Every structure is written in structure tokens, then in C-alpha cells.
Computed example of a mutant assay.
Amino acid sequence: MSQPVTSEFTDFVTDKLDLVEEELARQAGADTPFVTEAANHIISAGGKRFRPLLVVLSSQLARQDPDDTGTVSDQDLVRAAVVMELTHVASLYHDDVMDEATLRRGAESANQRWGNSVAIMVGDYLFARASEAVAGLGTDFVRLQAQTFARLVQGQIAETRGPQPGEDPLQHYLDVVADKTGSLISAAAVFGGMVAGLPQTQLAVLRRFGEEIGLVFQLADDLLDITSTRTGKTPGIDLREGVATLPVLLLRASSDPADQPVRDLLDADLSSDEALARALEGLRASHVMDEARAGIRSRADRARSELAALPAGPARDALAQLCDEVVSRSS
């Protein structure tokens, strides 16, 4: 059974994430002020830093005593966390071009500000910086980062093409989420374990845990497009752009005639705020919202169950707590 995370361990993790933040800004520096500004555009806008957090927590799994400072070097830990976040941020520049996004983290997107070509090249630049940094960790890290980026790209391609004839749209969506989000979050958990020198059996556990919690993270985030304005995210963006997320796919898969009026609302022209508000209201009142939340909780429970095979201690407790925190975002 997990224990409450102590303030000492929380402070320890915060200190490491502060080091990561400093190194992120340094790694995004370039030979010209313009590239430095553009490369820092998304980084400086903030973000959840979920992937660096997983690197830090996983790196402390061998630590039994909450007051133990551990034996993992700050240099390797920070480098591993920065590689994961730079890879993630690089993919965001590319995603915004693909999605023709105008906002990212509440600010003007890079493609909107400087154009698609610059945004694509800045994403390439940040991935190059991540590749340079990961080389200092060794070939096993390089291999995992390359495999992860390959999955990211394949997920983006699959999302762009959409489900093919005869393919289940819901399974297609889950596969895309696994490749685009789960793969990198899984790699972040494994990177932390590799930095700590954990055995292969425990790295395999972290890989599975990361895949599950990565899906939970994205599914919960997608639900916020419908349910919440508390995060500063304007609700209904996915609906208006025709992006089918879990509740919408569950609704479309339903054979209940009572669901047809809500489907009609979603199929209407959602360009006006009034039409979008009606669609959101109908979807929020639908049974599929509870079904989506139940599915997210089930995946979080599977992720938490994986942790039993990892060493007990403050890091495992923090990972268990993270499962609850990610689920709460969909409430």
C-alpha cells in the first residue's frame, strides 16, 4: 500500500525539476537570437513537465529512505529529463503545423507567428539538440529515443490519414494516442530507471506503466476539451475542428436511438459559438462521459497495479499518487 509522499521528497523532486528547467533553456539556445527566441517559444510558455517528472521519480526507485539523497548523478538525471522534454517540445512544433494551430499553451503558436517553414525547422533543431544530449548517456538511451521518435511520427501519420476502411475508429484513436503520447511518456519512465541502473525486469515494468499512464494522461486531457474551463483551455476546440476523441467515438459507436439527437448536434455546423455550446451541453449530459471516465479510471488502475513489482519507497508512492492526479483531471 502506498504512503503519503513526504514534503522532503517533494522538495527533492522540485529541486531536480528546477535544474531541468534551467538546462532546457540552455539547450534551446542557438547561434542567433532569432533561433534562440523561436526555440524557446514553447518552452518558455511553461507546461506540465510531466515527462521530466517521470524521469525524476523513476530515477529514485532504488531509494528506500525518504531522507536518502540517492546515488544518481544530477548530470545524468537532468540530461535524461531534458532529452525527453526536448523531444516532446520538438513534436509540438510539428503538430501545430499539421493541425494548423493558432495557439499553444495559451500563447500564439510558432507556426502562426513565424510561418510553417520556420516552425518545422525549429522542431528539427530541438530534436537535433535532444539527439546531441542523449549521446552523452550512451547507445541504449540513443536507441530508445530513436525508437520512440519513430513511434511518434507513425502516430502522427496514422492520425493524419484517419481510420481506414474496415478499421475500428475507436481502436484507431487509441493506437494513435499510444504512439503519439504513450510512447514518449513510457520512454521517460524507462529513461529514469536506466539512469538509476535498474534491472531489465524493472525497466520492463516501467515501460508498461508508462504506456498505461500515458494513455490516461492524454485521454484525460482530451476530456477537458469537453468538460472544463478551469485550466484555461477553451472548451470545444476539438469538437469544432472535427477531432473525434473518446466520448465522441463512444457516442458514434452507440446503437441506442436515444443518442441520435446528440449525434445530430455534433454533426451540425459548429462554427458559431451558439451551435458549439449546444453540442457541448448535449455531450456533457450524455452517458458516454461517464463511460469515458470509467475507462480512464480502469487504465489508471492497471498502471497502478504495475507498480507493485517495483521497489517500495517514496518514489513508488509518488508514482501511485500520480495515477490519482492524472485521473482527477478528467473529473
Rank of each mutant, 00 (worst) to 15 (best):
T139W: 08
V142P: 01
V190T: 14
D124H: 10
L184C: 08
T102A: 06
R104P: 03
L203K: 08
R105S: 04
D96C: 03
P199D: 15
A107S: 12
S91C: 04
A204F: 07
E159Q: 13
V205T: 15
E167S: 06
L198Q: 13
A146Q: 12
G123A: 07
G106Q: 09
R104C: 07
A178H: 12
V97H: 00
V122M: 04
R143G: 02
A196L: 06
Q145P: 01
Y173V: 02
Y125G: 00
V97S: 00
R151G: 02
L170V: 11
E167R: 08
K180L: 05
I185S: 06
D168M: 05
P169Q: 06
F191W: 09
V177R: 02
M194R: 14
A196S: 14
A146I: 10
L144W: 06
Q164N: 02
A119C: 03
L174G: 03
G192F: 10
D96Y: 04
R207C: 07
H172I: 10
G106A: 11
G136D: 12
N116K: 01
T181E: 05
D99Q: 02
F191Q: 05
L203I: 10
A187L: 07
A130V: 09
R208D: 15
A146Y: 08
V205E: 00
R129Q: 15
P199H: 07
A204E: 15
L184W: 08
L215N: 13
A196W: 11
A196K: 08
V134M: 05
E212Q: 15
P199E: 12
Q171K: 11
G197H: 09
R207E: 15
Y173G: 00
S91K: 03
S109G: 02
A187D: 09
R161V: 15
I120L: 14
V176K: 06
E212Y: 15
R113K: 10
Q171A: 13
L126R: 07
V142C: 12
G210A: 12
T102E: 08
A119S: 13
D96G: 03
G136R: 00
Q156I: 05
T201C: 04
E167L: 04
W114C: 00
L174I: 07
A119L: 02
M98R: 08
F191H: 11
Q112E: 04
A110C: 13
Q156A: 10
Q147H: 13
G192W: 09
V118P: 00
G210Q: 11
V190D: 05
Q200W: 06
P199L: 09
R143P: 00
R104N: 04
E108P: 01
G136P: 01
D95K: 03
Y93M: 05
I157R: 02
A146E: 10
R105A: 05
N111P: 01
V176S: 02
L92C: 03
G115W: 08
L137I: 06
D175N: 11
R105D: 05
A178S: 13
F209C: 06
A133M: 11
V177S: 02
V176T: 12
L103C: 03
A135M: 12
G123M: 08
W114P: 00
T181P: 01
F149I: 14
S117K: 01
R143F: 12
